[in-house]
Amino acid sequence: MNRVVQSPLLLLLGGALLKISAFSADYANYVKPGFRPPLIVAGAVLVLLSVATMALDRRRSRGGARQTELLHARAIEETHLARLVGRQPAISSPVPSHEHEHEHEHAGGNRVAWLLAAPIAVIFLVAPPALGSFAVRQAEQNSHVPPPTLVEARPIVLKSGRVNVLSMIEFANLAWDDPSGSLQGKTVRLTGFVVPSGQDDAWYLTRMRIACCAADALTMQVMVKGMPAPDTDSWVRVTGTWIPRKAGRTGAYTPPEMTASRVERITPPDEPYE
Rank of each mutant, 00 (worst) to 15 (best):
A172M: 13
T206R: 10
S197N: 03
N173L: 14
T239C: 04
V5W: 09
M54S: 14
T232V: 15
K186Y: 01
G43A: 11
S180F: 09
P119T: 08
T241F: 00
G132F: 05
R60Y: 06
L11N: 03
D26G: 11
W242L: 04
I20R: 04
V95W: 10
R62H: 12
M208P: 03
Q138W: 08
Q138I: 13
P244V: 07
L10H: 00
F35A: 14
A22I: 03
K246C: 01
I40F: 04
N142Q: 10
S180V: 09
P8Q: 07
L218D: 10
A16K: 05
G251V: 11
G251Y: 08
P37Y: 07
Y27G: 08
P148C: 04
A175W: 05
T254F: 07
W114M: 07
A217M: 05
L10S: 03
P37G: 06
V194P: 01
A139M: 13
D216I: 12
P179W: 08
A113Y: 10
H106Q: 12
I20Q: 05
S21A: 15
H102Q: 09
D26L: 11
F193I: 13
C213S: 03
S261H: 09
G161C: 11
P179Q: 08
M1R: 02
E69P: 02
H72S: 13
L84A: 10
R36A: 14
L70A: 12
Q88E: 13
R207G: 02
I210E: 07
H80A: 15
L218I: 02
P146H: 12
A22Q: 08
S97P: 00
Q221N: 12
D231N: 12
N173S: 11
S24V: 09
M168C: 03
V194R: 05
A130R: 06
H102F: 15
G185C: 02
E264L: 14
S182N: 12
L71H: 11
H106E: 10
A82F: 00
K186C: 00
A44D: 02
L183C: 07
S21V: 05
L218S: 14
A121S: 12
T239M: 04
E103N: 06
P129H: 04
E77N: 08
F124I: 08
N110R: 15
S143E: 12
L81G: 00
H102M: 14
Q138M: 15
V165K: 08
A217R: 05
P146I: 13
T239Y: 01
T241R: 06
K186G: 00
L13A: 15
P228A: 06
I266K: 06
D233C: 09
D57T: 10
A25K: 10
Y204C: 07
A172F: 01
G86H: 06
T187Y: 00
P8K: 02
A44M: 04
P196G: 15
T239A: 01
F193T: 12
F35G: 06
V145C: 00
V51I: 15
S50N: 06
D270C: 06
D216Q: 03
A117Q: 07
L13P: 03
V163H: 00
Y273T: 07
A90W: 13
V5Y: 07
G248E: 10
F171T: 02
P38V: 03
I20V: 15
E69C: 06
P147I: 08
H144V: 04
N164P: 04
I120S: 01
G34W: 14
Q199G: 00
P33H: 14
P94H: 09
A247E: 15
A113R: 01
T241Y: 00
L166C: 05
W242H: 15
